[in-house]
């Protein structure tokens, strides 16, 4: 296997549970125990009520594409073989917006508002990235 050269996340003290869950193929985000807010990216306290009590809940992994683009300009040399590559902003059913890539889908088939589901991409032995594919692509038993 060739070495993975793209930028990797740098987990810190308070977002480590996010990356650990992804490694187990779970999409987990913080939910405030006191007010119910679900937020992303991870931050130390609830941004809605400043409560320190939160739990890392498992999300459905479903949502829809708020918007999408194709990168033609090369900013990261490690992406040079994939230009033009897609970047999507996914609005999760639970609320948060997250940046990702669509997989198992041709670039020209990507549309705003299309339903998507998370796909766990084990890019290295240590890191799993949450990518997305058209909803319903999961094969039975997979």
């Amino acid at each position: 296997m060739t070495q993975y050269t793209k930028p990797l996340p740098t987990p810190d003290d308070f977002d480590k549970p996010y990356w650990t869950a992804l490694k187990k193929h779970e999409l987990r985000m913080q939910k405030c125990v006191d007010c119910g807010e679900i937020w992303f990216p991870p931050t130390p306290v609830c941004p809605a009520c400043l409560s320190h009590n939160h739990e890392w809940i498992k999300l459905s992994g479903k949502g829809k594409i708020w918007s999408w683009v194709f990168f033609h300009q090369l900013y990261f040399p490690s992406f040079s073989d994939e230009i033009p590559y897609n970047v999507v902003a996914v609005k999760l059913d639970e609320g948060p917006l997250m940046t990702s890539n669509m997989v198992e889908c041709k670039n020209e088939d990507i549309r705003c508002d299309m339903r998507v589901e998370v796909f766990f991409d084990d890019v290295t032995d240590l890191v799993t990235l949450p990518k997305f594919r058209p909803d319903g692509s999961a094969k039975p038993g997979s």
Partner: peptide
């Protein structure tokens, strides 16, 4: 470089405006 955008190749305010204009 950040954890929630760069791993997907997302960078630059221009790309954010591209997302907004697409929408």
């Amino acid at each position: 470089i950040d954890s929630y955008n760069s791993p997907f190749g997302m960078t630059s305010p221009g790309a954010s405006l591209a997302l907004m204009w697409q929408r």
